[in-house]
């Protein structure tokens, strides 16, 4: 890991508004994060918390059928992505950023053999000619651990299993030798055993190339397995951010605590009721002052409902861990003082 060099992708004060039909949604509400070369950052949050929009939005990959207003900063390699036109963004996608989607079956063209799809990508991104592109595609298939690549090259997507197709997707994402690999729930559609293989593959490729991996997921198991750092997102804001070990073993934000408590535990007996967080995520169509989690929070204080909690660093820990919950941070300080 070479975190000494600057971040490869940095987002600051990002605000994303979506307008469609008769709803306005504040999908991302002032989020800042950075990812460095060689690092794996997991972005965790429930459905609709803004994980995907926040990560892919600055790259111009946005949902269909909505008008998008995007403000803030998003920098990569000295360029501000938000000021780039669609053409320049399109050049960056694939070359600087590779994206692996959740469902490989719908992300691949069912009418084309996988090899030529891969070769076409290599041709577009690296300017390789026909034979070079084909060789590049075969190498990519080999690198992603697909057995018998010479045969698989001529297979159609429907002839391959979900795990194999996800490997092809990863190969596609790597075709342009990107610096950042964005994996949007790469294992959600896969079997548990295949999930482990795919995660291991991502790890291995990262070690070889030193690329940064942004992993979007709601699976805590996946996070604990591969992530260096975790960003916990709630209703379009960062609740907690820090090294995976600290966040997963000593969470501070009440939402993170609740989230981890709701992961089923094999050691508990079946009869014991599963923990959960009472209530539902807030309606993101309205902008209300205060903490978004206040309605469901067991530690809520009056000030939580009127003031946005700043994302403050936890003092007294050896690592950089930031939490958007003043009451919890205060409690922690008082405990340390006592």
């Amino acid at each position: 890991m070479s975190t000494a060099s600057g971040p490869i992708y940095e987002v600051g004060d990002l605000v994303i508004d979506l307008y469609a039909g008769n709803v306005s949604v504040r999908a991302v509400d002032g989020v800042s994060f950075a990812i460095h070369p060689g690092e794996t950052v997991a972005i965790v949050g429930e459905s609709g918390s803004g994980k995907t929009v926040m990560t892919l939005g600055p790259l111009g990959l946005l949902p269909e059928g909505v008008t998008v207003d995007i403000r803030g900063r998003a920098q990569s390699g000295g360029q501000d992505l938000l000021t780039l036109g669609p053409r320049r963004l399109s050049e960056l996608r694939g070359r600087s950023f590779g994206v692996v989607f959740q469902d490989p079956i719908s992300a691949l063209n069912p009418m084309k053999r996988v090899g030529p799809q891969l070769a076409a990508q290599a041709r577009r991104l690296t300017g390789a000619t026909g034979r070079e592109a084909r060789q590049a595609a075969l190498d990519l298939l080999k690198r992603t651990g697909i057995p018998d690549p010479d045969d698989r090259y001529f297979r159609y997507p429907h002839e391959m299993s979900g795990g194999m197709l996800q490997r092809v997707m990863i190969a596609l994402a790597l075709a342009g030798k990107p610096k950042v690999l964005i994996a949007d729930e790469p294992t959600t559609a896969l079997d548990a055993t295949v999930q482990a293989q795919i995660l291991e593959l991502i790890r291995q490729l990262q070690r070889e190339d030193g690329i940064a991996v942004l992993l979007i997921t709601h699976d805590i198991g996946v996070v604990s397995r591969v992530a260096d750092r975790v960003i916990v997102l709630y209703a379009g804001r960062i609740a907690e951010e820090g090294p995976a070990f600290e966040v997963l073993t000593a969470p501070i934000h009440p939402y993170t605590i609740g989230l981890l408590d709701s992961v089923p535990d094999l050691r508990k007996s079946i009869g014991e009721p599963r923990q959960g967080i009472p209530g539902v995520p807030p309606d993101q169509s309205m902008l209300v002052p205060g903490c978004r989690f206040a309605e469901r929070c067991p530690k809520v204080e009056p000030r939580c409902r009127t003031h946005r909690p700043p994302l403050d660093q936890v003092r007294g820990r050896a690592v950089v861990q930031r939490v958007a919950c003043p009451p919890q941070l205060r409690a922690l300080r008082e405990m340390a003082d006592a």
Binding site: D17, Y19, A20, G21, S24, R26, E64, G65, V66, T67, D69, M286, L287
Partner: peptide, 22 residues
């Protein structure tokens, strides 16, 4: 039947509302 992006007057009204809320 297809979701449509907000456009024109509706969009500017929504943006104004949002700015006010903010």
């Amino acid at each position: 039947k297809v979701p449509r992006p907000a456009r024109g007057l509706t969009l500017s009204r929504r943006r104004r509302d949002r700015a006010k809320e903010e």
